[in-house]
């Protein structure tokens, strides 16, 4: 069992050096060990900045960020935190460092100073579960955008993090690869890993324990994923989110009493209910 870690933000603010506006304004947030949090919000609302605070890539310009009990401003915090908290970037090119698939995956565990047999084992596992084992000897340049996104995840899984931060990490994947990627995240969550996931797609958040919504660097809503998803299209539209088409259809069919309100918003469940 890989017990996740707890993170807490207390009045955390962040302003980029060249910017007049704060990207995050006095955020209070307690992330429990093993919790899965989905972070939503419009472009420029501070989602990516929040993730960078959580793995000590940035430190708050005011307030406190504690990761597994350690203040991220302490000198040895980045080294300790990077061994436990891994961030998968929006753009995989930002984190791929080597030119060959297996070398890139080995970069993280090598930096942790692990014995070579263990590095080999971890690289193999990470490449198998991300479906890249066959491509282990391939140059990174020959991978497609979606394959690079999986490689970024493999590199991160190889360090067996206790907290996984995902910054729109599925945005370049086709629906089939997205399902695979999401089930990898679910498996990590079941192992006890803390997950903080930034996304624009409402069909990726149904397994989250909690949804937080950011507007202009502040948390303007938080609650359960199902509660969030049950809001009407109009309400979601006002905060710039689009309900998946199948959820729109499900809601209408429930209203017409053609299917039961407990029916999931997927083709198979609706079909089963309609044929009942």
């Amino acid at each position: 069992m890989n017990f996740g870690i707890q993170i807490s933000l207390n009045g955390a603010e962040y302003r980029y050096p060249e910017s007049v506006k704060k990207s995050l304004c006095g955020l209070d947030l307690e992330i429990r060990a093993g919790e899965w949090i989905a972070v939503l919000g419009p472009n420029g609302s501070g989602k990516s900045t929040l993730l960078k605070l959580l793995n000590a890539l940035l430190v708050p310009t005011q307030g406190i960020c504690l990761v597994d009990g350690q203040d991220t401003t302490e000198t040895d915090a980045p080294v300790n935190i990077h061994a436990k908290v891994a961030l998968v970037f929006q753009n995989p090119e930002d984190q791929i460092v080597a030119s060959v698939v297996e070398e890139d995956t080995a970069f993280g565990p090598e930096n942790l100073g692990l014995p070579s047999a263990e590095i080999r084992e971890r690289v193999k596992n990470a490449l198998i579960i991300t479906g890249l084992w066959e491509k282990r000897k391939s140059p990174v340049s020959s991978l497609s955008g979606g394959q690079k996104q999986r490689l970024a995840l493999a590199g991160v899984l190889a360090i067996t993090p206790k907290c996984l931060l995902l910054d729109e990490a599925m945005s370049m994947l086709d629906p089939a690869s997205r399902r695979d990627f999401l089930s990898l995240v679910k498996a990590e969550h079941e192992k006890g890993t803390t997950i903080v996931q930034v996304t624009h797609s409402l069909d990726e958040i149904s397994d989250a324990d909690r949804v937080i919504f950011l507007t202009d660097g502040k948390i303007t809503w938080q609650g359960g994923a199902q509660e969030f998803l049950s809001q009407s299209c109009d309400t979601l539209g006002k905060i710039n989110l689009e309900k998946p088409s199948i959820s729109i259809l499900r809601d209408e069919l429930v209203k017409l009493k053609l299917i039961h309100e407990s029916t999931n918003a997927d083709a198979r469940s609706i079909m089963k209910e309609l044929c009942r």
Partner: peptide, 20 residues
């Protein structure tokens, strides 16, 4: 292979096969 139909389209296709 690798292409997933949008859910609404997949549902309509199943419903059509069932004559609904």
């Amino acid at each position: 292979d690798g292409l997933v139909l949008p859910e609404v389209l997949a549902l309509s296709s199943e419903l059509m096969k069932a004559g609904m």
